[in-house]
Design a protein around this nucleic acid. Structure first.
Lengths: 157, 157
DNA sequence: CCGCTTTAGTTGCAGTTACAACCATTACAG
DNA sequence: CTGTAATGGTTGTAACTGCAACTAAAGCGG
């Protein structure tokens, strides 16, 4: 148990450090990645927050930071005046691509590398099982594609 | 992979929340526990920091907080004028005992519960393996009882 | 014994995060 | 329509954390 505690303490910062040369954090990577995978490279903040397991205040500030780097921009949602879309810019897409090698190598070296394939599988299973308990509202991406995301297909007129 | 990211994001805060009624964080619990297990209920700050995988600045401040609650107190180390010992008080020991049920139930409900015993075992193995890579200096408690701790046996004269 | 380096801890500062309070917009009941 | 509740985001505040700078005490070579 103490081991797992240590792991939870050390892993996140270790991953962040590996990704540091790319100029973004692990969490920011997840944000950019989510946007890149989305329809029209845009997503509502609340949907994005769910998908990345972040609170809305946190995401809002991170988006502000990414906006400052011109990796994303905010666009009001036409369908719902309350909502805001985060939109991935070209620079943001480039940054994501640039960070990809670091990301994968970080994941590999810090986690997957040297493990039996079956162990990796069981780890995936395990994560899913644990998440189910942590996330009773099942708001997150675990369920493949929940009711989240989808944004609004603005320029589809 | 996204699952594991979610897990790393959610687990720590979930554990902290479970422990909140006891008035301490998961990390503080680890600190108190370490002290309780130590010789004379005391440990040097640097040793304690290693054992809990924390930086020294962080630990220093957490200790200050615990001191304010009278759970620990600082005592200068007689053998080495630079060093400071954190000493567990009776109140601290009581707090630890009081938090124990919450702690165990948190660990069980959020993690171990519902898993195959063998899965738990492989998780332990896995943690150990991953830690070996995260902690090249092997300063931590993983190695059962490294060169850390030991404090100084003051009143053993 | 005197400086130089190393070690132990503390603190200033900046960045991040959560919670709560807040504003704006939408949804809905009457 | 109008008022009330719910939803989407933002921001003030406070707590926590890491890095770097700093003080104090050993350790050590001369």
């Amino acid at each position: 148990m103490a081991r797992l505690r240590a792991l939870l303490e050390l892993l996140p910062s270790a991953l962040d450090k590996e990704l540091a040369p790319a100029g973004i954090t692990f969490f920011e990577y997840a944000v950019l990645e989510s946007l890149a995978e989305s329809e029209n490279h845009r997503m509502r903040l609340s949907a994005l927050a769910s998908r990345t397991n972040a609170t809305l205040p946190r995401l809002s500030r991170v988006i502000t930071g990414l906006e400052r780097k011109d990796y994303v921009l905010r666009a009001p949602c036409e369908a719902d005046g309350r909502a805001t879309n985060a939109v991935l810019t070209d620079a943001g897409g480039a940054a994501l691509e640039g960070a990809l090698p670091l990301y994968t190598s970080a994941v590999r070296s810090k986690m997957l590398d040297g493990l039996e394939p079956e162990t990796v599988d069981s780890l995936a299973e395990l994560s899913l099982e644990l998440l189910r308990r942590l996330d009773p509202d099942k708001r997150m991406a675990v369920t493949a594609d929940g009711p989240a995301c989808a944004a609004d297909p603005i320029d589809a007129h």
